[in-house]
């Protein structure tokens, strides 16, 4: 599933400016607000779904080579966070949906690991 498709399914705003990254394919996802758990359990290259908004979310994604972060519950990243994401070629999406709905929609659409 491409990041563009994910943004569409979640009615998410694309906060990043580099549109070429939207064609990247994602094969797995991990949802958590606890970054230690992301570091412990997420597969490399997964989509990260989180309601936590701070620079460490971007660093965590960077360490795991994650191509995209979806911020749920309408969280909008600060400029500082966006800049950090762009430096590391990580796409940032923001959806008004809650974590549970976000995961359910993506799982049903085939992003099931």
């Amino acid at each position: 599933m491409t990041i563009r498709e994910i943004a569409g399914l979640l009615n998410a705003a694309v906060c990043s400016t580099d549109a070429s990254l939207l064609n990247k394919e994602v094969e797995a996802a991990f949802g958590s607000d606890m970054m230690s758990d992301v570091l412990a359990y997420a597969d490399e290259g997964s989509l990260l779904i989180s309601g936590l908004l701070n620079p460490q979310v971007i660093r965590t994604a960077h360490m795991l080579d994650m191509p995209c972060i979806v911020f749920v519950r309408g969280k909008v990243p600060t400029k500082e966070i966006l800049t950090l994401a762009e430096e590391n070629h990580i796409v940032v999406l923001s959806t008004p949906l809650r974590m549970y709905a976000t995961c359910g929609i993506l799982y049903t659409a085939g992003l099931d690991r």
């Binding site: 230690s36 758990d37 570091l39 412990a40 936590l52 701070n54």
Partner: peptide, 12 residues
């Protein structure tokens, strides 16, 4: 509240 301190640091 910043996403750490879950007791996973050293085990990780």
């Amino acid at each position: 509240s910043l996403g750490f301190g879950a007791g996973m640091g050293l085990p990780n």
